[in-house]
Design a protein around this nucleic acid. Structure first.
Lengths: 224, 224
DNA sequence: GCCATTATGTGACTTATGACACACTTCCGC
DNA sequence: GCGGAAGTGTGTCATAAGTCACATAATGGC
């Protein structure tokens, strides 16, 4: 499979591009480049202009942010097949976090200027993108309003299910970071996780959570 | 002032269109129509296709949703100069609430089909719109994450300040509805409002809140 | 291995807010 | 004006979750 075709597949897997036709995807993919990073190399930093979208071909990219006290907080890991910077490539705003290679990595790069001039030549795709962004706005506001007022167990279950989509049943995250994600104190997170451990829904290890019963977790997340 | 110019001013006041140039605004405005509604007339209902954007020229439109128990809940009042349906005009999704005229009204109407074909002819404006949508996505996610985990007084103060922008210092809303807005129990809303009344920040009447000290309310809203 | 560091587990206490109950007031239709 | 409905004010209680304090356990550098 050619690089372009590989990139098209990655785009297709992202909700933002999922509804585009094969033809449109192919033309977008033809704009892409690749970039190699060695382990520890910085891809971009907070405040840099958002001048590209990236897809991970191999390796791992850590998305992290410097806390005020100097410690670093990992927000996300991007592995092969993951896409990030979809919004930045469109609006060119500053990056809101840092990205560094956790290991030697190869990335697909879609540059903002290339993508925008493509959209200018293809207004129908631009309108498609507009509709996708609108969906996202609607989806976001629904989710937020609905999700935020939920009790902690629900928020926690939702976050774990989301993480499971990226990592499978072994989620690699500290309870502290999980707390930041769901907007709760570490201790509260711990207590809830303990309760679930007693129910055999999951197991806990230092820096790791093993999800045994995603079905049950999903039920809690739905809060029916 | 011509109708078109009037509509351009309304668009300009909306963050979604605020950054567009006078030239672009004028061309968009030339697509608009007007529509008259008598008091109580229905503009659209939940589930209708979102086929237009509306600007209020005169009168009042009530945005409301039917609760499960049959009672109606007013989500918002749109007065002269207000714009609604900005997202619907772009993505055409179903309306998520009902809109009825609270009094005899005249509206500016920008039809979806007209706007889309305009964007197709003017890809630069389409890209502009894409960027504005991206801003909105960023803004939304920042706001939400940040706002929702705030304590009730902060959420309440924020909502009151926002309402003050629409209504001035006399906000016409029941404490029950205010509770729905900020995701809190009516009683909790009442107790907080009582406290502020004692501090002379506001005064309470049946179905009405008189804001005396917006400065103080803003300080609370900022939660510094 | 040893120590410093970081992550986790848990108890005790406090606080914000929701839930329920009920009194009182204002409004509106007849 | 009467009566019911809707809105408001307040007390009491239960509970979820934050904070503080400290113990314990794993990890990594030397």
């Amino acid at each position: 499979m050619s690089k372009q075709a590989e990139f098209a597949v990655i785009l297709k897997m992202n909700p933002m591009f999922a509804d585009l036709g094969a033809d449109e995807l192919q033309r977008i993919s033809s704009l892409c480049h690749t970039q190699h990073l060695s382990s520890g190399e910085v891809l971009f930093q907070k405040g840099d202009p958002g001048n590209a979208l990236f897809g991970v071909r191999r390796g791992q990219i850590r998305i992290e942010t410097g806390a005020t006290d100097g410690s670093r907080l990992t927000l996300n890991f991007m592995g092969p097949g993951d896409l990030f910077g979809e919004v930045a490539v469109l609006d060119g705003q500053e990056r809101t976090a840092d990205a560094t290679a956790g290991e030697a990595s190869e990335l697909f790069v879609l540059r903002r200027e290339d993508f925008l001039s493509f959209l200018e030549r293809e207004p129908k795709v631009a309108i498609r993108i507009i509709q996708l962004l609108c969906q996202r706005i609607r989806w976001q506001s629904e989710r937020m309003e609905e999700s935020v007022l939920q009790p902690l167990p629900v928020r926690l279950a939702r976050r774990l299910c989301a993480l499971a989509e990226d990592f499978g049943s072994e989620v690699h995250i500290s309870q502290e970071q999980l707390g930041v994600f769901v907007g709760a104190a570490r201790e509260s997170v711990n207590r809830q996780l303990q309760a679930w451990r007693k129910d055999k829904i999951l197991d806990l290890q230092r820096g790791r959570i093993l999800l045994h019963d995603l079905t049950k977790l999903n039920t809690i997340a739905r809060n029916e």
